[in-house]
């Protein structure tokens, strides 16, 4: 479903991604792990072109994302994204945060969008917060609203960029629970995370990245129990 070929990304002189090839299938849950600065967030952000791709290509359902002829907004409708810092729109109520893009981008009827938004809030356990503003919510609640907001576009893939890294420890679980629920429903997910428990339990494949390269990939059992690469072993010995 997502095919990444020879992906390079440089910020000026600094080469962050040094050629990555990978293929993600439908309904797969992929976790990307690795030390800070290894390029895992950049890798994720290249998939929906939040970062311009320096060289190589990304295909989603056979459509080349970084082709000048591709309308990137059409691609992004199918690719939901959840950020480390939530990035909720602070000037809108929770309900409007969720309905704004279905209404403005997909021209969905306001009533229909509201029904959808309330269903999604129900799903993430925040039905009673529809009329709250983001600043009235806790971090965990904000992140769950952010997930609902992304789901409102009915994406086929969800990208999670360290979704629990900015949360207080006691709020991590409520966000992970929502993600697990999504996984059970068959959503294709790419998750950049430091939550090794989640990676081990939920993922189909684990990608270990270091210094802009995809060092090793495999099932959680392979990566966590029998890592091949020295760097993977060194990293895991520090985080587990």
């Amino acid at each position: 479903m997502i095919k990444i070929e020879g992906l390079h990304k440089s910020f000026g002189e600094l080469e962050v991604l040094k050629g990555i090839d990978y293929e993600i299938n439908e309904k797969e849950i992929i976790c990307v792990i690795g030390p800070s600065g290894s390029g895992k967030s950049t890798f994720l952000r290249c998939i929906n072109m939040l970062e311009e791709i320096t060289a190589g290509s990304v295909f989603i359902d056979g459509v080349k994302v970084n082709d000048p002829k591709t309308n990137i907004n059409d691609i992004r409708k199918d690719v939901g994204m959840v950020f480390q810092q939530f990035n909720l729109f602070p000037h809108m109520k929770v309900l409007d945060n969720i309905t704004v893009s279905p209404r403005k981008v997909k021209n969905m009827d306001a009533k229909e969008a509201e029904i959808l938004a309330r269903q999604l809030l129900e799903k993430v356990g925040l039905a009673d917060k529809a009329n709250a503003y983001p600043e009235q919510l806790s971090g965990g609640q904000m992140q769950r609203v952010a997930i609902a907001r992304a789901l409102a576009m009915k994406p086929r893939v969800m990208l999670f960029d360290e979704p629990t890294s900015a949360l207080d420890p006691e709020m991590v679980k409520e966000v992970l629970d929502v993600m697990k629920q999504l996984a059970y429903e068959g959503m294709t997910m790419v998750v950049v995370t430091h939550e090794m428990g989640f990676a081990r339990e939920m993922c189909d494949r684990v990608l270990f990245m270091d210094q802009g390269l995809l060092m090793e990939e495999g099932t959680p059992a392979q990566i966590f129990n029998h890592p091949n690469h020295e760097r993977t072993k060194a990293f895991l010995s520090k985080v587990l």
Binding site: N48, D74, K77, G80, M81, S101, V105, A146, A150, M153
Partner: peptide, 8 residues
């Protein structure tokens, strides 16, 4: 980024 990621 959040707005663009939603397809706006």
């Amino acid at each position: 980024e959040a707005a663009r990621s939603l397809g706006m």
